[in-house]
Amino acid sequence: MKKVYGTAAEALEGVLFDGMTIAAGGFGLCGIPEILLEAIKQAGTQNLTFASNNAGVDDFGIGILLQTKQVKKMMSSYVGENAEFMRQYLSGELELEFNPQGTLAERMRAGGAGIPGFYTKTGVGTQIAEGKEHKDFNGETYILEEGIFADLAIVKAWKADETGNLVFRKTARNFNAPAATCGKICVAEVEEIVPAGSLDPDAIHLPGIYVHRLIQGEHEKRIEQRTVRQKEEA
């Protein structure tokens, strides 16, 4: 099976459709599939639902799709740092399904494992629990959360081999691994593609069986919040 494609547009050909659900990796600006997001913007796909930790910032990440009004709904755990997200949500232009961070990660992982739902204590007694099934286990109340089954997963990794085995770099692993597993099709963008067999099997973070298409590209190295120490007087 051919997995390596020349461009993001080629890798997404025949995959995108209006109204689809997309699981996206990344945390803040770390490890986000920026090239694939730009390709989705250029494709003009509409009414998208994104399952993602956040929506990037106004001019980067999913934020660029908010600017073009291509996103209908966000399933997220953190919605700060994006003024357009806030504006659209408060004006009723954007739906938001708010998830505790660990719950969102587990919903993705559950979907990837074929698990339709699970019980968790996180969110009990809060707005998160409204409208959800409650059940007691050993005298403690839990709520039912559903697994996420996305039409497409888009992720960013550091290195891949030609069969799709992925290696993430440090904290850029974040939501990428669970997001990759819960999509019917997973497209990954990487900094480097190496020949099959050249990766140490013990160093592979995501097996290639989850990855259907691959692209290699140049990525920005943005810093979301730059913090520096005050210069000391001599």
Rank of each mutant, 00 (worst) to 15 (best):
L16M: 09
I128R: 02
L37S: 01
E232L: 09
E162L: 05
L66S: 01
G6C: 06
G31Y: 03
N165D: 14
L29Q: 08
L36A: 12
Q216H: 04
A203P: 00
E81V: 07
V4D: 02
E146Q: 15
F98W: 07
E95F: 06
G123F: 11
M108K: 03
L94C: 02
I32Y: 12
L152C: 07
E38Q: 15
P195C: 14
H212I: 06
Y5L: 07
A83W: 00
V228T: 14
Q70I: 07
L29V: 11
L16R: 02
E106S: 10
I64R: 04
Q225T: 10
E233V: 12
M1Q: 09
E146H: 15
F98I: 13
D59K: 12
E97S: 10
E191C: 06
A24Y: 10
V57N: 02
L12E: 11
G25Q: 04
R107I: 00
E97T: 14
E130Q: 14
G63M: 08
N47R: 15
D18L: 12
M75I: 15
A11Y: 05
L65K: 04
L66N: 02
K170R: 13
N99F: 14
K121F: 06
T45W: 09
P207L: 09
E95I: 08
D136S: 12
R213S: 04
L48N: 07
S198N: 13
T103V: 15
L104F: 13
R87D: 11
G164S: 08
N53L: 13
N138Y: 15
N99A: 08
V190N: 09
I115D: 05
R109P: 00
L16N: 11
D200I: 01
R109H: 05
